[in-house]
Computed example of a mutant assay.
Amino acid sequence: MLPDTPVTSSTFIPSHDLIDWLRMLLRAERAGARLMLDSAGQTDDAGLLRRLAQLHHGEAESCRRLRHCLERLGVEPGQGMGEFHAKAMAIPDLEARMQFIARGQRWVARQVQERLPALEPAWLRDELTVVLQLHQASPDA
């Protein structure tokens, strides 16, 4: 459950670097969520559809958590999605695309893992820990 108490300037002032990083992750996760849906529309393979549905669920949950973090920090989450979607969709072979997706999952996990120990406040670290766990639990991570 996500806490609903907004952060006030007296409790924590996020750096521009932190805000930019969270927005970048959110754009990447939006790209991933859209990618799973678009890729699912290109196959009728039941096993692959299950993998894509599981990945989509994780990407959508990560989007929700990242958006909430930004809102709780008192900043606009921003719009758009990352380049990952276009790059992945340019790979016509779905198995090769799934390998590219796996690299993307690992990239997000590394991004979060590297910054996690220094993240403040604790609620932000907790939220990003869940995002990390979602990417580590991914069938293609």
Rank of each mutant, 00 (worst) to 15 (best):
R50S: 08
L119K: 07
E95S: 10
I19K: 02
R23A: 04
D140V: 13
A109G: 06
L22W: 09
V130Y: 09
D17I: 05
E29Y: 02
M36P: 00
L119W: 13
G104V: 06
T43Q: 11
L66W: 06
G47W: 05
T8I: 11
A86W: 02
A86R: 11
R67S: 11
L70M: 08
E127G: 07
L52Q: 02
F84N: 02
F84R: 13
A60E: 11
L52N: 01
D45Y: 01
D4W: 04
A60N: 04
V7P: 00
D93Y: 00
C63L: 05
P139T: 10
H135I: 01
A96W: 00
L2R: 14
E59F: 07
G74Y: 09
G82C: 13
V130G: 04
P121N: 10
A28H: 08
G78A: 04
T5P: 00
M1G: 15
S138L: 01
R50D: 11
S10Q: 07
Q99E: 15
A109C: 04
A28S: 09
E29H: 10
V112D: 06
R65E: 01
M24G: 13
T5K: 12
L49R: 11
A60H: 08
L94F: 01
E95K: 09
Q99H: 14
A33G: 02
E114I: 13
V130N: 03
L70Y: 08
V130F: 07
T11E: 15
R103Y: 03
G47P: 00
P121S: 10
I91H: 01
G74H: 11
W107F: 14
